[in-house]
Computed example of a mutant assay.
Amino acid sequence: MTLVFTYALFALIAIIANIGVQAAVMRIYEGGLALELSVLSGTAAGLLVKYTLDKHYIFRFPTRDAVHSSKTFLLYTATGIITTLIFWGFEFGFQAIFQTNSMRYLGGIMGLSIGYVIKYQLDKRHVFR
Rank of each mutant, 00 (worst) to 15 (best):
L35H: 07
W88L: 13
R125A: 14
K55C: 02
T2L: 12
S41N: 03
I114A: 12
N101I: 07
M26A: 08
Q22Y: 11
F94A: 10
I19C: 04
A96D: 09
T72I: 00
I15K: 03
G93C: 05
A78N: 01
Y116R: 08
F10A: 01
F73T: 05
T83H: 06
L48C: 15
M103P: 01
L12G: 15
L33P: 00
S41E: 06
R129A: 07
G107H: 06
S102Y: 07
F5M: 10
L40E: 01
F10W: 07
G80V: 04
L53F: 06
F73S: 02
L112E: 04
R64I: 02
T43Q: 09
T2R: 14
T63Q: 05
V117Y: 09
G107F: 06
Q95F: 12
L53Q: 01
R27W: 12
F94T: 10
M26L: 15
A23Q: 12
G89N: 01
D123L: 00
A78I: 07
I86M: 02
L12E: 01
F10I: 01
S41G: 15
V117L: 14
V117K: 01
I15D: 00
S102V: 11
K119A: 13
I19P: 02
T2P: 04
Q22I: 14
L106N: 03
F94L: 02
A17E: 11
T83I: 11
F10E: 01
V25M: 10
I16L: 14
F87K: 01
A8R: 02
G107N: 05
A45P: 05
I118V: 15
F92D: 02
V127I: 08
R27G: 03
V21M: 09
I82W: 08
Q121S: 08
G20W: 07
N101D: 13
T6P: 00
I82F: 15
I82A: 15
F73V: 06
Q121L: 12
G31E: 04
F87R: 08
L106Y: 04
A8C: 02
V4L: 13
V4Y: 11
K124F: 15
K50M: 14
I86Q: 06
A8T: 13
V4M: 07
S102T: 14
I13E: 05
Y76C: 03
A34I: 02
L9C: 10
F10T: 02
